[in-house]
Design a protein around this nucleic acid. Structure first.
Lengths: 197, 197
DNA sequence: CTGCCAGGTTAGCGATCGTTAACCTGCCCG
DNA sequence: CGGGCAGGTTAACGATCGCTAACCTGGCAG
């Protein structure tokens, strides 16, 4: 009997997802054919349809699970932290770790978002909005009188800062990790000496 | 005889470029057919080839000119400024202004970069590297002992911060402008009170 | 007036892509 | 032993795409 869901189908699906993440990141969703993807998995062409309903479905599963994981772990880390300051630091830490360990996924997420089928696109949008608001909530309790819209824009900017770096090859991971965290925190936390002139 | 280069063919070319920027930004380079692009310009289909050698050439001209403009104006503003601090502020100002006034171009630039034909891709890479180094130079004279690689990573992160926001609809322009400048400067300038604990 | 040519048009080609169909095969369960 | 099925294969289809070809037309130069 087929294991219906929420069970780890052993390897192929995940191999396909991982390979697809790398290929999509390198050449874009539309720049990778199912034949390319199959070949890169050692099988070839239409064998993918034994594991996914369509090429879109591969992208959908990839992006939805990213968004779910970001939100789930983010929420957990916030409720484990004491105080908005610690919560925000935990969020920054988590996001930087994720971005550095899943560079391909980050690239695909914000490049090929629009190629998602409608249903998955809306699910991702909902999850992302929740994630943004998780950040925005912490920001609003750190900055007096910060309105929600501005807080969301700040969160978005921080994501841009952190997510930008997968595209740069150079710096070794540990240094990059520290640089990103320092920059993100300076950008997000209220400056002790107020605004620069 | 065809006018070889460096001459302003009055309007159609520029209309095509502007329309293409919007369409590419909305649906991605591969998501827009030449028929779509033509129709959006009031003409239809292969008439584009009277103005551009190929679909790739449209993208190439768009992205090369962005990179040239960013570098040229950035260089000018730096040499007009006195001191690295003022130079960096001028760079941030220029980049934020550009990103807010050319949201479509910014989106295309970092989404569809890989769709460029090789020649244009290398030209863009060269220009971008110069632009990054322009920022990195200012950063290195502001931070003691900052190595070039790290400075480049910081510049990249700042671009990510600033460029991320075209994708968000919400905040009205003037507020967003101020928020971005403030965040970018906090992220880039040495913190008066050093690193947060 | 005549002829050129910039800038359009439609038809159609060749390639590629996502997807389906039909078939094969080796393993596991009864 | 036998048969079903998971997981492959190749062939082929229809759609779409970038691009070319062939043709038309109106405005200007001589």
């Amino acid at each position: 009997m087929s294991q219906v869901s929420s069970d780890e189908t052993p390897s192929r699906r995940e191999q396909i997802l991982a390979t697809a993440a790398d290929l999509f990141a390198a050449r874009g969703f539309h720049g990778v054919s199912v034949a390319d993807l199959g070949t890169a998995c050692g099988i070839s062409g239409p064998a993918l349809y034994k594991h996914f309903a369509s090429k879109d479905a591969v992208l959908a599963e990839m992006l939805v699970s990213i968004s779910e994981q970001l939100l789930a772990v983010g929420t957990a880390r916030v409720s484990a932290a004491q105080g908005a300051d610690q919560a925000l630091r935990a969020l920054v830490d988590w996001h930087v770790d994720f971005a550095l360990h899943h560079r391909a996924l980050i690239i695909v997420q914000d490049r090929d978002w629009e190629s998602l089928p409608v249903q998955a696109r809306e699910r991702v949008r909902t999850l992302q909005r929740s994630y943004v608001d998780l950040w925005a909530t912490q920001l609003r309790s750190l900055h007096d009188g910060l309105d929600l819209t501005t807080a969301r824009a700040m969160a978005h900017a921080a994501f841009g800062l952190i997510n930008s770096t997968p595209r740069t090859g150079a710096l070794p991971d540990p240094s990059l990790h520290d640089v990103l965290i320092a920059m993100a925190l300076r950008a997000l936390l209220p400056a002790p000496g107020d605004l620069p002139a």
